[in-house]
Nucleic acid binder design. Sequence first.
DNA 1: TTGATAGGCAAGTCATTGCTTGCCTATCGT
DNA 2: ACGATAGGCAAGCAATGACTTGCCTATCAA
Lengths: 97, 97
Amino acid sequence: MAEDVFKALADPTRRRILDELVERDGQTLFEICARLVTKHGLGLSRQAISQHLAVLESAGLVVTRRQGRYKFHDLNTEPLERVMTRWLRPDGPESTP
Amino acid sequence: MAEDVFKALADPTRRRILDELVERDGQTLFEICARLVTKHGLGLSRQAISQHLAVLESAGLVVTRRQGRYKFHDLNTEPLERVMTRWLRPDGPESTP
DNA sequence: TTGATAGGCAAGTCATTGCTTGCCTATCGT
DNA sequence: ACGATAGGCAAGCAATGACTTGCCTATCAA
């Protein structure tokens, strides 16, 4: 639902996670944790990130594939594109001049 | 800030308000209240809507102009367009084929 | 000037949510 | 088999946020 997409985007940490996945797709939970700590100085527990990833996944923004004991997370921008044109009027400012 | 834009979009009532303003720009607080009640069945107090409008305004999504005792609210989609391309990869799905 | 209309301010309530802590399951390497 | 690694589940806490209630200011019409 669009509902979940907006709620998922409301948290800054979740947006950081999306930023990470844009830069490198298919990361595991522990990789994302390490990246957030080293690159952004975020000192969050593993569970916190895990819960954020669950929110992103149930919003459809992140897709996961399991492989052995690893769970890789991939970004999915398709829900974004469907939702973002909602308030762009036809006569509004040009999006692609 | 982009921060405020996402938080502003997180609430369903605020998104309804934006929907209302897309349909008809320059509404007053009372008009928006009436519209939300009649069209969407939302039974919210005037202050609730007023607070939502304040959030939208401080996010830059709504611009206001005062005229006598009336305060007209106009939609401003510019903050949206700056924020929405954040996770769209260059090699990702085509946004404008 | 008086009453009615349009809006603002502030405190208080109640639910949501982000985060932690503690424990448990599953897979891999040796 | 055993320990180590990758992840999951669930209860609890503290902070944020949405909404209400009550009162106050400002503009306009009569």
